[in-house]
Simulated scan of single mutants.
Amino acid sequence: MLSPVLEMDLDAVAAAYRRMSGAMPGVALHYAMKCNGFRPVLERLRSLGCGFEIASSNELDDLLEIGVDAAEVLFSNPVKAPAQIAHTFAAGVRQFAFDSTTEIDKLATLAPGSNVVVRLAAPDIDSDVPSEGKFGVEPDVAVDLLLSARDRGLRPYGVAFHVGSQMMRPTAWKAPLDEVAVMMDALADADVRLEMVDVGGGFPASYDSPPPPMSEYGAVIQAGLDRLPYPVRAVAEPGRALVAGAGRLVATVIGTAVRGGRKWVHLDVGAFNGLMESLETGNRLRFPVRDSLGAPDPEPCHLTGPTCDSQDTILFDVPLSPGLTTGDQVFIESAGAYTTVYASTFNGFRIPGVRVVGSVTTT
């Protein structure tokens, strides 16, 4: 079996999409391409009616190749290179996020008349995968920015926020939606009526423990939308919730050693070439792991990657078969999100290949 390789089950992707869209019937889902840009995944989601969110013009080009209408794409990166604004605007993108006056200047010049969505800083973030703090402004600043955008010929279209990645608390969406309501009232006083609220991503996948039911997230979000001063179009940008559980990373043991009384299992894939979230979370993101021996009495092992960097460790105290040795295989589940897209060729080790498993086979 080819190794390392990320196996993607497209039927599992479809099931996750249907589950989430069913839990949020009033929210349009726009898949965050940064999570996994494997073309068969994009094609399956498009066939289901899913929209898309991008952070770069290269991601837009990938969508155009499968027939996605650029006018339906959300460009949610609040700070964009001028060339990327010009390229995406020329291709038909008309919705751009921003959170600064300098971005207003760029958009007014390079994407005149576009719909602009201000990025609001979400309060009370404590997600399992920290991803916030770089973008977003306070509500009063967001109001001023939208009014400034209007004065520059842009269309103040909406507000967006992001509660962080792998958010296990459905109630995290309540406070930012309440702040959106305050913004909408303030904007109404200036004769500005928003048309869209983007509740972002952060919806979790199942790793070592299952997250709350998606219906709980949908209920909190719908309640927040119902509290807004007037109806708006609601969108979300799910990523890992749609694809993480559909992926299995197949790895091969390249060696084992006993150090400090604990067995270390070295794989042909590690943090730098496929599992960067191990580093990003301080090894707290617990991927489900099993091995090809399947011994009934596993022993705790440290699971590490192939490079010479000591940081290249995936998980500590993973239960694995005692006889596991060179050439055996290890299967890392819930690996469909932020694996190959984060991967590098550090130390010369290759990025895992990606293949489809399930009802459709693609190389």
Rank of each mutant, 00 (worst) to 15 (best):
residue 10 L to W: 14
residue 16 A to R: 13
residue 18 R to H: 11
residue 20 M to C: 07
residue 21 S to H: 06
residue 23 A to G: 07
residue 25 P to F: 03
residue 26 G to S: 02
residue 27 V to I: 12
residue 30 H to P: 03
residue 31 Y to F: 14
residue 32 A to V: 04
residue 36 N to M: 10
residue 41 V to A: 09
residue 43 E to F: 07
residue 44 R to N: 05
residue 55 A to P: 01
residue 55 A to D: 06
residue 57 S to A: 15
residue 60 L to Y: 04
residue 60 L to V: 02
residue 60 L to C: 01
residue 71 A to K: 15
residue 85 I to M: 12
residue 88 T to I: 02
residue 88 T to S: 15
residue 94 R to F: 02
residue 96 F to C: 00
residue 103 E to H: 04
residue 105 D to V: 07
residue 113 G to P: 02
residue 114 S to P: 02
residue 114 S to N: 10
residue 116 V to A: 12
residue 121 A to V: 04
residue 134 K to P: 01
residue 134 K to H: 15
residue 135 F to I: 04
residue 145 L to F: 07
residue 148 S to M: 12
residue 148 S to Y: 03
residue 158 G to Y: 00
residue 160 A to V: 00
residue 163 V to I: 15
residue 163 V to M: 10
residue 164 G to L: 09
residue 166 Q to C: 00
residue 171 T to Y: 09
residue 171 T to R: 14
residue 172 A to R: 13
residue 173 W to L: 07
residue 173 W to T: 02
residue 173 W to C: 01
residue 174 K to C: 06
residue 174 K to G: 04
residue 176 P to S: 06
residue 182 V to T: 02
residue 187 L to T: 01
residue 189 D to H: 06
residue 190 A to P: 03
residue 193 R to V: 04
residue 198 D to E: 09
residue 199 V to P: 09
residue 203 F to G: 04
residue 204 P to T: 06
residue 204 P to N: 08
residue 205 A to M: 07
residue 207 Y to P: 02
residue 209 S to L: 09
residue 210 P to A: 15
residue 215 S to F: 02
residue 219 A to F: 01
residue 219 A to S: 10
residue 222 Q to C: 00
residue 226 D to N: 13
residue 227 R to L: 10
residue 228 L to F: 07
residue 229 P to H: 02
residue 231 P to T: 02
residue 232 V to D: 04
residue 233 R to N: 03
residue 236 A to V: 02
residue 237 E to Y: 02
residue 237 E to Q: 12
residue 241 A to L: 11
residue 242 L to H: 01
residue 243 V to L: 08
residue 248 R to G: 01
residue 250 V to F: 10
residue 251 A to H: 01
residue 252 T to G: 08
residue 252 T to R: 15
residue 253 V to Q: 13
residue 254 I to R: 14
residue 271 A to T: 02
residue 272 F to A: 05
residue 274 G to M: 08
residue 278 S to I: 05
residue 279 L to F: 10
residue 282 G to P: 12
residue 284 R to W: 04
residue 292 S to L: 09
residue 293 L to N: 09
residue 294 G to A: 08
residue 299 E to G: 00
residue 300 P to Q: 07
residue 301 C to P: 03
residue 308 C to Q: 14
residue 310 S to W: 10
residue 312 D to K: 11
residue 312 D to M: 13
residue 315 L to D: 08
residue 316 F to R: 15
residue 318 V to N: 13
residue 322 P to R: 12
residue 323 G to E: 13
residue 325 T to A: 15
residue 327 G to K: 14
residue 327 G to V: 05
residue 332 I to Y: 14
residue 333 E to Q: 08
residue 336 G to N: 04
residue 338 Y to L: 11
residue 342 Y to F: 11
residue 343 A to R: 07
residue 350 R to A: 13
residue 353 G to N: 04
residue 354 V to W: 04
residue 355 R to I: 03
residue 355 R to M: 05
residue 355 R to Y: 08
residue 357 V to A: 06
residue 358 G to Q: 03
residue 362 T to F: 12
